[in-house]
Amino acid sequence: MTSFLDPFIAFVSAHAWLAYLTLFLAALLEAVPVVGSVVPGSTIILALSALVPGGELKLQWVLLAAVIGAVLGDGSAYWIGHRQQRDILNTWPLTNYPRLVEESESFFHRFGTWAVFFARFVPPIRAFVPVTAGALGMAPAKFYAINIPAILVWAPAHVLPGVLAVSALHEYAGLHHHGHVGKHIWILTVIAVAIVLGAAVWLVRRRNGGGVVEAKPPV
Rank of each mutant, 00 (worst) to 15 (best):
L18R: 06
A31F: 13
P33L: 13
L21Q: 12
Q60I: 02
V38A: 14
A31H: 15
G137N: 08
S76K: 09
A145S: 15
F24C: 11
A145I: 07
Y20R: 06
Q84E: 09
P140E: 12
I148P: 07
V129I: 14
A119G: 08
W79H: 15
P123T: 05
T113F: 02
L29D: 04
W79F: 15
A19Y: 12
L59H: 01
L94T: 03
A139I: 11
L18T: 07
S42W: 00
A119C: 11
V32Q: 07
A70R: 02
L18P: 02
L51Y: 06
S13W: 07
S49A: 15
F24N: 11
L23A: 11
V71C: 10
L100D: 14
F121K: 04
Y78G: 04
P7T: 10
A66V: 14
A141F: 03
A135W: 01
V39C: 06
L46I: 14
V34W: 09
F121W: 06
F143A: 13
L18I: 10
W92L: 11
A127H: 06
L59M: 08
H15E: 13
L18C: 04
W17S: 12
I68E: 03
A70M: 04
L136P: 01
V122M: 12
A27C: 13
F143E: 13
A115I: 02
H109N: 04
V39L: 12
G134P: 02
V116C: 03
